[in-house]
């Protein structure tokens, strides 16, 4: 019990810090790949600090409520995950959080935010199947949906679930909002929807969204970590290394692709989910 409380508190406190550094590294490595110098590694922190100092100018005052709800649900999902709760509950909580983000975007009545919100909904529909299939795959392999049980198995789930792993990395591109699937909200705002979903958020609200990204990133990397848990220390070490490698692979993918349209994102995510995910689950069913 104490461990759970400690891990939740550790998540709540450390996740933004680690997430911030990871985001900074993302920008620095991207810059190096483009032969630029790039911002200092703590730049995301400076950005959020600046955002919190800005004047609040919201088109509607309900926005804040929705964004706080989004943040709460997202942090809640992460907390449940690190407290060892049910994986499906985690996924659904996270989905509600994302739904609140979409509603917040709709509430601002701006055309850019509306189109961004539509795209965000399509994105959600694109990645949900794969997430759920991953959870199902864990259940098939380890026999439980609870994260507590999933971190203490005997064998590493990586190789038997390799199809699901690759599929998960694929949709991670969508979740991390990286090219080719940064449809609804690009970090660089160089897209047709200005800032997409987050167009109408300013100041503190925008700051909260940035912070929520950090939480989300850490929680998603936690998912990858689950693939490598086998109860031993070196399993954890490999897990951590693969998490970081996966993150930088996403950065590399971000820099190597143009942005695709939502039709392609949707279709390809479902095809990957079906081909890799379902086949893998089938194999898991037959073999294990």
């Amino acid at each position: 019990m104490v461990i759970k409380v400690i891990s939740v508190i550790a998540y709540l406190v450390l996740a933004p810090i680690v997430g911030c550094i990871l985001a900074g590294l993302d920008r620095k490595v991207s810059a190096k790949m483009q032969r630029r110098v790039g911002p200092p590694i703590l730049q995301p922190y400076y950005d959020v600090r600046k955002l919190f100092e800005k004047e609040k100018m919201a088109p509607t005052r309900y926005q804040d409520f929705y964004i706080i709800a989004y943040l709460v649900f997202l942090i809640g999902a992460g907390a449940i995950f690190f407290a060892g709760g049910d994986l499906l509950l985690v996924i659904f909580t996270e989905t509600i959080g994302a739904a609140f983000l979409v509603i917040a975007a709709y509430s601002s009545n701006s055309p850019y935010a509306e189109v961004g919100a539509e795209r965000e909904l399509l994105q959600m529909m694109a990645y949900e199947p794969m997430m759920l299939l991953t959870a199902v795959g864990f259940y098939m392999f380890h026999g439980s949906f609870t994260v507590d049980d999933l971190v203490k198995p005997d064998t590493m789930a990586f190789l038997p679930m390799i199809g699901l792993f690759i599929g998960f990395i694929y949709i991670l591109t969508i979740k991390f909002r990286k090219s080719p699937f940064d449809l609804s909200m690009s970090h660089h705002a160089h897209q047709e929807l200005v800032r997409g979903v987050t167009t109408e958020f300013v100041g503190r609200t925008m700051g909260w969204i940035e912070v929520s990204h950090w939480y989300e990133n850490i929680f998603l990397l936690g998912f990858i970590f689950l693939f490598f848990c086998n109860g031993t220390v070196w399993g954890c070490v490999i897990g951590a290394l693969v998490c970081i490698a996966a993150y930088f692979l996403e950065v590399f993918i971000d820099n190597s692709f143009a942005r695709m349209k939502w039709q392609f994102a949707f279709k390809s995510a479902w095809i990957v989910a079906i081909v890799l995910g379902m086949v893998n689950i089938f194999i898991l069913q037959l073999v294990f």
């Binding site: 490595v29 790949m33 032969r35 820099n255 190597s256």
Partner: peptide, 22 residues
Amino acid sequence: GVFTIGKVLVDSLFKKTACRMY
């Protein structure tokens, strides 16, 4: 047709920056 720019990116990681810090 994928990662066509990959070589350029990887090479750039190990080259000096092209920025003039003027």
